[in-house]
Design a protein around this nucleic acid. Structure first.
Lengths: 197, 197
DNA sequence: CTTGCGAGTGAACGAACGTTCACTATAGTG
DNA sequence: CACTATAGTGAACGTTCGTTCACTCGCAAG
């Protein structure tokens, strides 16, 4: 074997990842003794230094570690379906990221809404889908927005030509809306999520 | 005012939430002094006891706290669009959850794939969408699966009648596939995510 | 006025923590 | 062989942590 110690290290990283995901915190060195199978805290100390160099953890403060997205990001991102699908045996680290960090830029301004109605179905937004809405961003033509027009909330494409704002559905059965009295942009749709089962 | 102390407490919870989201760890009591505006660690101690009683944090070990989903779940879930959209002024806590916890049941068995091809477009799965795939679950009729059939990977509806497995597209331009030689189920599609911008 | 309660201050304490030092064992290299 | 690097052990050290105790202040109820 070329790298006889790569396996145990990957295993320890996996254990640390599991611990962080389950307990939502870093284990103390004394807990890592059991977790990693060491009997000396110095071994833990040096292992954590390697993890820091490898980007799995970072120093949050003196004497304190915090996990990075590399460690606690829960989902592995692979290529496209046609590009191939690694076998469970390979199981190599491609990239790991957290859905929260992947989808949400400003958590304090982001909301989830369940969609009802089929006015955006041609854009692949079905009834029952969940949209991630971010308040307060800059609205541009072509954005999908949650808007209150003349007192009623809808999801539509945003389109502004000159001073005329049009809210366009993605369904030929509906007509574009031109606000008569009031228009409030509740937020921009940043993502659509459909959950099965 | 009936509850003169509700506001500062909500503000402190917000600060704690922000700290946990930013640093991915609990602050120490000494850090909470600045964070909460206290000058005594005892005040911090008693405040944390209230947070524990209120379900924002839990004891991970003696002398250690861990945040609950109530605290660090980043996204607020609201009702349907038509059901109304709370104004930014209200800003009341409806429910808070983490996208990771919401979408992923078994993180170690879940992968993300980017979709190419339009064979599932009538199911609202477009090219460029991201699918969350969970390995190893029990496949049932009607599930959307990632499958390797005769050497090639695709996404299709899973359908089994007797011993005959059919992989059905959601696009009339394509034909159902009946595996000739081999069929490998790579996983079940648990969610579809489309990200804008 | 007194009593009681909630909220905060400030000091003190023991335990646990992360870090460091000295040392051992094994394997690879020239 | 000697030399070096890697991985780990075990003990010790000073710091910081969470917790506890005693006390103060303001306010509302009896």
């Amino acid at each position: 074997m070329i790298m006889p110690y790569a396996k145990p290290q990957q295993d320890r990283i996996q254990r640390l990842r599991a611990f962080c995901l389950e307990h939502k915190r870093m284990p103390a060195y004394s807990e890592m003794l059991n977790l990693f199978g060491y009997r000396s805290k110095n071994a833990v100390y040096r292992f954590m230094q390697k993890l820091e160099a490898a980007g799995y953890v970072r120093r949050a403060a003196p004497r304190k570690f915090a996990p990075t997205g590399r460690l606690t990001g829960s989902i592995r991102l692979l290529g496209t379906v046609q590009a191939g699908f690694p076998s469970p045996a390979e199981e190599e680290l491609v990239d790991v990221l957290s859905l929260d960090e992947f989808l949400v830029q400003r958590p304090e301004a982001t909301y989830m809404l369940t969609v009802s109605g089929d006015s955006m179905i041609d854009a692949g937004i079905h009834p029952g889908d969940i949209v991630l809405v971010e308040r307060g961003g800059l609205t541009r033509n072509g954005d999908i927005v949650v808007a209150q027009v003349d007192g009623e909330w809808t999801i539509k494409y945003f389109s502004k030509r000159g001073r005329i704002v049009r809210l366009e559905p993605a369904n030929k059965a509906y007509q574009p809306i031109v606000p008569r009295h009031s228009l409030v942009i509740g937020g921009i749709v940043k993502a659509v999520i459909r959950k099965y089962r």
